[in-house]
Design a protein around this nucleic acid. Structure first.
Lengths: 148, 148
DNA sequence: CACGTATTTGCACGGGTTGTTAATCAGCAA
DNA sequence: TTGCTGATTAACAACCCGTGCAAATACGTG
C-alpha cells in the first residue's frame, strides 16, 4: 500500500473524496503488519474518531482493495484480515493467538503437483499453521487471542 | 474417510448411535470428490429422506470431522466445504464455477521460505485458484456455479 | 458561497453456522 | 418385549460477519 499522501492523490484522481475517516484509515493501515480485521481497525479508529461507523471501515477497506492497495487475507475461519503488503507473499497463522505474519517463498514454481491437469492456475496461496515464537515459548500458558 | 460399514463400527465404539440420517450421510460422503457444502449435502439427502434437518447435517459433519474422518476445506469466501479425503493433500478452486479438486504436492519441503524464523509450523495448506478445464474451454460462456 | 455528488451513518437484512429446547428415538438390560 | 436412560432430532432463535438501503452530511469544484 502506498503512503497516505500518495493515496490522497490516487483517490482524488479517481474522483473519490478525501474525508477525515479515509485519511485516518490510510494512516492506520500504512506500514501495518498485524493483518487487522475490520473490527480491529474500527476499534482503533474509534479511539481517535469516536462515532466512526463500522460500515465506513468496510467501505474504505473495499475501496482500497479494489484499487489494489490492500490484500484480503482469509485464514480458515473467522473474519477477513486486511494486508497493506501487496507484494507476492504468503502467510503463517498462529493457532494459539491468531497472529498472522508474512512469509516469502522463493521457489514456488519448483513444486511437483499432481491433479492440475487441464487446470489453468492464476494464483497460489500458501498458509502455514503452527505456533508463533511467543506462543511456542509460553506453551502451557498461551497468549490470549488478539482478535475475536 | 472410511467406508460406511467401518464408520458404523467406529460410531458404536464411541458410544454414538447409528441413525438412518447418519448412515445416509456416510453413504453420500463415501468416495465423494466434489467437496460439497453442508447445504449441498442437505439437498442431496432430502431427495432420499425428505424432512431431514440441515442441523442434523451439520451435527454429523462436525462429528465426522472431530473423528478425523472428514476435512474442512475453506477456500476464501463462501460456505465451508467437506472433504472425505483426509490424505495430506491440497486444493485447486475454479474461479468461474467454484469447483474444488484435490491436488497432491510431492516436494513441499523443498520450498525456501523467509519469515518463518521462530515459527513452529504444523501444517501447510496450498490453494490454487484459476480456471478448471471445463471453464477454461468454455471461456466467455462460463458454467453456472454448482454451489451457492 | 453554493451546488452537485460522493460519503457517512444507522438500520435492517442476508448467508452461514451454532445454541437451545422439547419431544422423540435408539441402545441396552432384564 | 418392555422399560429406562441418555442421545438425537427438528424447529426456532441467536450469532457473526458483511452488505444494501435511505436519509443526512460533507467534500470540493465552479
Amino acid at each position: 500500500m502506498r503512503s497516505p499522501t500518495e493515496l490522497t492523490a490516487a483517490f482524488r484522481l479517481q474522483g473519490l473524496k478525501l474525508t477525515p475517516q479515509r485519511q485516518l484509515l490510510f494512516r492506520l493501515l500504512h506500514g501495518n503488519t498485524v493483518h487487522p480485521t475490520a473490527e480491529a481497525l474500527h476499534a482503533q479508529a474509534s479511539e481517535v474518531m469516536p462515532g466512526i461507523s463500522l460500515r465506513t471501515i468496510y467501505q474504505t477497506l473495499n475501496d482500497l482493495a479494489a484499487m489494489g492497495e490492500l490484500q484480503l487475507v482469509s485464514v480458515g475461519s473467522g473474519p477477513s484480515r486486511f494486508d497493506p503488503n501487496v507484494d507476492d507473499h504468503h502467510h503463517a497463522v498462529c493457532i494459539e493467538c491468531g497472529a498472522v505474519v508474512d512469509v516469502y517463498v522463493h521457489n514456488l514454481a519448483v513444486l511437483r503437483v499432481d491433479g492440475l491437469a487441464g487446470f489453468q492456475p492464476e494464483t497460489a496461496r500458501l498458509v502455514f499453521s503452527g505456533r508463533c515464537q511467543r506462543c511456542a515459548a509460553a506453551s502451557g500458558e498461551p497468549t490470549p487471542p488478539k482478535h475475536r
